[in-house]
Design a protein around this nucleic acid. Structure first.
Lengths: 222, 222
DNA sequence: AGTAACTTGCTGATCAGCAAGCAAGCTGCA
DNA sequence: TGCAGCTTGCTTGCTGATCAGCAAGTTACT
């Protein structure tokens, strides 16, 4: 109180504020379109402070990415643990997992946009962080489908389809979706979309070789 | 001497060369990261020529987009006409359409990237061009499923799922796909992905209400 | 000779990174 | 206890580079 000068020094708070601001700005505007000036202003510090804490714009960006991946990785781990501890049947677990993943992405537009921009920039994802999350998810779904090794890659293909279906409407809610007659701009319409995705995955699963090994030719297993 | 022919003047050729170069550069690098200098160089003209023909960078970009949409619209129209003229059953037509759409997108990475960047920029698509292509595709699939009016939006939801599944692997072949154990970097791996997508859509269709609840049983259902 | 098809010079704006500066607190020593 | 001197947190001035758009110039074709 007596020491309430204009600025309270708190490097941890500054660091976090800068990371939060940078994550949002990089996600919304992209890397190039975001200036350190903007990041500083949004974080309530000066133009030079992001550089002071993170060295360079690029290092700041990489720190943002790392933090996001860590969060995703943690979420996948927890989701898997919950599924393992559950007593539901495979279909119910899978339906719940798809629904949860849909909601997870919907709640993290910054993450989705950052990855999307990474993809457009042509770069690969940092192998450690992304692979560990992806492989954990793959292990979970493989186990659930009883395809632990899955040399055919069926589980991986299905997982990629689930991600595709959950991911796309978030990115293209204002572009492709309305063009084909699907409105997604409010929550209940997005819920409807989610139900369709869950149903499609379940129906696809029932008819696929993953559980029945009968539908498609087991052509070149050797 | 008389015609040193170092430069042949040909405005039509220059225009097209500039549009081609701009389409590629905008798709690969994005709007902001692409300078008119680069466009001119890639098109074999000087730094000022793109501005001379198109007025401004923004007008050049919009012309690029318009040209791309026109091509897509035409492709959808032809695909629909072909499907209408065919005598195959619904499932076969749908499987072929999904496969063709997958290949169509794979052959047009510039288009996919341009739309993706539009989505990330937050802008909507030009209503005329995108709606006409999307609604035409929707009409085609609705007719095929016997859901001409489809107040439930089932056909639109399915169409959006098809687009999601075909679109996503093209964008995320180097990001999400390898993270979950799906490699897509060569043609045969992409073919495998396509087969999975077609199978998933067909299985999902068989189990969905689209064919089983609303209309009379189609003749093909086993 | 006239006009369309280009090119080149210029201007003001923006940005990242560096370096210098300033201020807030801490540490050690009297 | 007090204060000098140092470290850390943070700001501001500067520099070289890039870019879009415009104006003025130049070349080719009719």
């Amino acid at each position: 109180m007596a020491t309430t000068s204009e600025r309270v020094r708190d490097p941890e708070r500054s660091r976090t504020a800068i990371l939060d601001a940078a994550e949002r700005l990089f996600a919304v505007q992209g890397y190039d379109a975001t200036s350190l000036n903007q990041v500083g202003a949004a974080a309530g510090v000066s133009r030079g402070t992001p550089g002071y804490f993170f060295g360079s714009k690029l290092e700041l960006y990489q720190t943002v990415l790392d933090r996001s991946f860590a969060e995703v990785r943690e979420a996948v781990r927890k989701g898997r643990a919950r599924a393992l501890a559950s007593n539901e049947d495979s279909e119910t677990i899978l339906a719940g997992a798809v629904s949860d993943y849909f909601d997870f992405l919907a709640a993290r537009p910054n993450f989705v946009r950052l990855i999307e921009r990474e993809a457009l920039s042509g770069s690969r994802l940092p192998e450690g962080a992304s692979l560990s999350a992806g492989q954990e998810a793959l292990a979970a779904i493989s186990a659930e489908l009883g395809l632990d090794d899955a040399p055919s890659g069926e589980a991986a293909q299905l997982l990629l389809s689930i991600i595709s279906l959950c991911w796309f409407p978030l990115i293209h809610a204002r572009t492709v979706a309305p063009a084909v007659g699907v409105e997604l701009e409010n929550g209940s319409l997005m819920e409807q979309r989610k139900r369709h995705v869950v149903a499609l995955v379940l129906h696809g699963l029932r008819g696929s070789s993953a559980l029945t090994t009968t539908s498609t030719e087991p052509s070149s297993h050797d």
